[in-house]
Simulated scan of single mutants.
Amino acid sequence: MRRDIYTADHDAFRDTVRTFAEREIIPHHEKWESDGIVPRELWTAAGRQGLLCVDLPEKFGGAGLDDFRYHAIIAEELAYARASGVGFVVHNDMAVPYLTRLATDEQKERWFAGLVSGERIAAIAMSEPAAGSDLQGIATTAKRDGDDYILNGQKTFITNGINADIAIVLARTDPDAAHLGFSLLAVERGMPGFERGRNLDKIGMKAQDTAELFFNDVRVPAANLIGEEGRGFIYLMEGLPRERLAIAVAGIAASQKIFDLTVDYVRQRSAFGRSIGKFQNVRMDMAEMKTELTVTQTFVDKCIVSLNAGDLDVTEAAMSKWWATELQKRVVDRCVQLHGGYGYMAEYPVAKAYIDTRAQTIYGGTTEIMKEIIGRSLDL
């Protein structure tokens, strides 16, 4: 479909990202899936190419482009490349934005250059074994002790968790203050008591390191407090719309890629002496998917423009995340069916997409939570 939200500068940047994916990611992604992790060298290569934190100031090596469309292009191109194991989107759009908005000048000097170069990899640590979508159920605690916080607890399902040099951790700093009792702390690699558990064995997205994190009396300097104490939950609520939109962007792009591959397949595959694309039921399936993809892309693009303008609200972000990821599941499932037996073969991209897609409606807030957010906005 024709999209009018991108300029010639964006198109040039897309060419750069696509070339990088073709040279640096696609030839190696199968090995990384076997390894269960992406090498740190990829991150520094991406940093040299200007693909990390393009919105950070030029003085730290960034491009100073306060324009989410550049990050959206990265998410789209990684999805088109079927590079589900590369955690750039988590770094760019889920973790670092908290620092972009809230970091002190001293923190910026310490961290920003490394985040742009890829020498520092960021993760956001919210989910716990007993607290996923219900963030107010978080049990990790941080108690002030002089110039430090003493951090204790456990996080799980943390993307970039093994590679992370900075984990932005949501912890309870005041057990009696309800939603005003949470704070964000930047926990850095090497802090005593900060330990990583196993690299979790997921059914899909195998190259993406997803870890358990443990905090055993970790002394986190008060200088690593992100923003103000007690406002961590509020900061998360402010940051989640961008995170959810980033997931929606990747979801619709991944759907489009599998759809395009399926168009080629049904043109070439023959049955009963003709291309299966000539059968009416196949054409109807393809027509329905094409329409749903076009409508969804239009809405996601509207949300991208709204985010850039600073007025993407929580409800629209929830709508985009819910609809795009559920559509992704439907499209991939139908494309597997259209591939027949080949769709069930692991070497076919559509089969791999079928497994990788399943997490999309879970992380970043489940579909059920997205519907609850939308429902609450109706004030029924």
Results as ranks from 00 to 15, higher is better:
141 T>M: 03
143 K>P: 00
143 K>W: 00
145 D>F: 01
150 I>S: 01
151 L>Y: 08
151 L>R: 08
153 G>P: 09
154 Q>G: 00
154 Q>D: 06
156 T>G: 04
156 T>K: 13
157 F>S: 02
160 N>G: 07
161 G>I: 04
162 I>S: 10
163 N>E: 14
164 A>T: 15
164 A>P: 02
167 A>R: 02
169 V>P: 07
176 D>H: 14
179 H>N: 12
183 S>H: 05
185 L>C: 10
186 A>R: 09
187 V>H: 06
187 V>Q: 04
188 E>D: 11
189 R>N: 15
190 G>Q: 12
191 M>L: 15
198 R>Q: 14
198 R>H: 13
199 N>S: 14
200 L>K: 13
200 L>S: 04
202 K>Y: 12
203 I>R: 12
205 M>K: 12
208 Q>K: 08
209 D>E: 13
210 T>A: 12
212 E>T: 14
212 E>G: 05
213 L>M: 13
214 F>P: 00
214 F>C: 03
218 V>I: 08
220 V>I: 13
220 V>W: 06
221 P>Y: 11
221 P>I: 09
222 A>H: 03
222 A>T: 14
222 A>F: 01
224 N>L: 01
224 N>R: 05
225 L>E: 08
226 I>G: 02
227 G>R: 11
229 E>I: 06
231 R>Q: 14
231 R>G: 02
232 G>F: 06
232 G>D: 05
233 F>G: 01
235 Y>H: 08
235 Y>V: 01
237 M>Y: 03
238 E>W: 09
238 E>F: 09
238 E>C: 00
238 E>H: 09
240 L>S: 13
241 P>S: 00
244 R>F: 02
247 I>W: 12
250 A>M: 11
251 G>L: 06
252 I>W: 05
255 S>M: 04
257 K>C: 05
262 T>N: 03
262 T>A: 04
262 T>C: 05
262 T>H: 09
265 Y>K: 08
265 Y>D: 01
266 V>P: 03
267 R>Q: 15
268 Q>A: 15
268 Q>W: 01
269 R>C: 08
269 R>I: 03
269 R>L: 07
269 R>S: 04
271 A>N: 03
